[in-house]
Design a protein around this nucleic acid. Structure first.
Lengths: 138, 138
DNA sequence: GTCCGTGCAAATCTTTTGCAAGGTT
DNA sequence: AACCTTGCAAAAGATTTGCACGGAC
């Protein structure tokens, strides 16, 4: 079981609202939209404002404790990141199941590109989607 | 010089509006937002509706004649793709200068992932940003 | 002539912001 | 007590949609 308190230290003051947002994000286990997370919290009885959800997620991103991808509708989906290390994910387009993938190749390539392109402060985003074994069979 | 007529064949009927949208996208040379493109067209005197710009861009994406990236504000930026082949770009965060990069490594990695992950129809998006030589010096 | 594309405006949707009230340190 | 955080509502911004008209085939 994770300890949201550790994460809260990274994103500001300890409040019940932020704790419940972080807990809900962790419990969800995969990528989830801010509005969906808000709905989940409401269903749980947590009276948390939508903008608090947004701000908490933004703070987690700032602290490198969350990853973000764009879904096809332009909505941003967030996923909790237990460690502070950079990660990439393969997400199922049908059920949203997401799995972290080994992307050392990408990191190496990105570093090489940073050195040879003349560009500074090179950052990269990699989004992988597909149909998971469960979904491509059905 | 490119021939928009060839592109129009891919996206539906030949109309002056679509031609001007495609022409403007090509002339721009880099990534540009739909609304900005609309402004450019207005400045040129082309009375094209914003939704026509959106539809034309969507049609180009469908036909693999355009690439899209997300800027930090959530806006989608489009770039004309002369050939139908898959490409990746390194975009300057300051001036939007974009250059295509050699991403064979990525393609190979993505294919490998598709074979080993159990996922089907794996697609990938790679977005690279940095500060170009012009901008990181200033 | 038929059907698709266009334009205008309104609607939709996500995300951000203003401000007073309440909680944290 | 000082300052940050919350919540509500409204604003902002991008993209899509409804519908009547006009052009393409």
């Amino acid at each position: 079981m994770s300890a949201p308190a550790d994460d809260l230290d990274l994103i500001g003051r300890h409040t019940a609202q932020r704790a419940s947002v972080v807990r809900a994000l962790i419990d969800h286990g995969g990528f989830v939209g801010a509005q969906t997370l808000h709905d989940v919290l409401k269903a749980r009885g947590s009276r948390v404002g939508l903008n608090t959800v947004y701000r908490t997620l933004a703070a987690l991103l700032d602290a490198d404790r969350a990853d973000v991808v764009h879904d096809r509708g332009g909505e941003r989906l967030f996923r909790y990141r237990p460690s502070a290390e950079h990660r990439h994910y393969l997400v199922c387009r049908a059920c949203d199941l997401s799995t972290a993938v080994d992307a050392d190749v990408i990191e190496t390539w990105a570093e090489h590109l940073a050195r040879t392109s003349g560009f500074a402060e090179v950052e990269h985003t990699v989004e992988l989607t597909g149909l998971c074994p469960q979904c491509c069979g059905s």
